[in-house]
């Protein structure tokens, strides 16, 4: 049998598995910072909370393992002690499990990629109340099916996240936000891997990170002025398009900010549900049916638009 099945699950995960149990509907509560994504859970569902705590952080491995209920604040404080970070860029009271379950990337995705690419290992509690481990604790791993990526953005409908191992990144020496009125597409084309380029149709915000000489040299390429940080993103509305389609956006009556090079538009208008092809919908329903036949995990929420 197993030599070391990915290290034994800690007691907290076992407790959580008991809490989730094997019957009656449950919904996992995190920081409720993106609570309405995918619709509110059924009232009938029993609320459970994932374990909290940073269980191991090995700075030289650049990995951190924590309970899914750990807040981003706690995580970032721990990592900052070693000049490391996980670039979630979400509300500090959001939980790691919540952010991953919702699966929305932060505003520095342009440089750091989607948050799902930072997940190394996940332990979740399945519909039978059993612990399932997928992925692996090392920074690189292709052992078995990639359930970790599947879990990110699944709104807890395929399993309740209990424990997460993440890849950390070194904190950049310098971070600078600049703003002005230049063409955002031209700015993006001119820079080598900026961390963020935001645009509201008139104003542009650029985030440059790295060693200070590089940040200065890149900033000098642009005719922008220094600013405190990113703008306040409007409302709950969020839609996504191909990066090049952002060009056709125009300043209208809605308030929006687009992530150039990424294709995400934040706006104060509620987002329209996106369509999933019939074939993909049936694959997704099959996944739900097989992993949670009775639909007891986070009922009411919809990952696949109805």
């Amino acid at each position: 049998m197993g030599v070391n099945p990915l290290g034994a699950a800690p007691q907290e995960v076992h407790q959580f598995s008991e809490e989730v149990g094997a019957s009656d509907p449950v919904t996992v509560v995190g920081g409720k910072t993106q609570w309405n994504v995918g619709g509110a859970p059924d009232h009938s569902a029993r609320e459970v909370t994932a374990p909290t705590g940073i269980w191991s952080h090995e700075p030289e491995e650049m990995t951190v393992r924590c309970g899914a209920g750990t807040t981003l604040l706690e995580l970032s404080e721990q990592l900052a002690r070693h000049s490391q970070m996980v670039p979630f860029d979400m509300a500090p009271n959001a939980t790691v499990g919540g952010v991953l379950s919702v699966g929305r990337s932060g505003i520095r995705r342009l440089r750091y990629g989607h948050i799902r690419d930072l997940v190394l290992q996940i332990r979740h509690i399945d519909c039978n109340g059993k612990i399932v481990t997928s992925g692996g604790p090392t920074v690189k791993n292709v052992s078995g099916y990639d359930l970790c990526r599947l879990m990110v953005g699944s709104l807890g409908k395929l399993g309740c996240l209990a424990e997460v191992t993440l890849r950390c990144l070194p904190m950049p020496e310098t971070t600078r936000w600049l703003t002005g009125n230049d063409d955002p597409f031209e700015i993006y084309a001119r820079l080598y891997r900026p961390s963020s380029v935001l645009w509201n149709g008139e104003q542009v915000w650029v985030c440059l990170e790295g060693v200070s000489s590089d940040v200065e040299a890149e900033a000098a390429l642009l005719d922008l002025t220094e600013t405190e940080g990113p703008p306040q993103l409007p409302g709950d509305g969020r839609s996504s398009v191909q990066p090049k389609e952002l060009r056709s956006l125009s300043a209208d009556d809605t308030n929006w900010i687009a992530e150039i090079g990424v294709g995400i538009i934040h706006s104060d208008k509620p987002s329209k549900p996106q369509q999933v092809s019939k074939t993909n919908e049936s694959l997704m329903r099959e996944l739900e049916r097989r992993l949670d036949p009775n639909g007891r995990l986070n009922p009411g929420r919809q990952v696949v638009p109805l």
Partner: peptide, 25 residues
């Protein structure tokens, strides 16, 4: 035998990440 597109050029395709699951399968 059916043909489908997993993932999308848009930043956040709706539904589960079937693309992520397919890569490495």
């Amino acid at each position: 035998g059916s043909v489908t597109l997993l993932g999308d050029l848009a930043a956040e395709p709706p539904g589960y990440d079937l693309r992520g699951l397919f890569v490495g399968s």
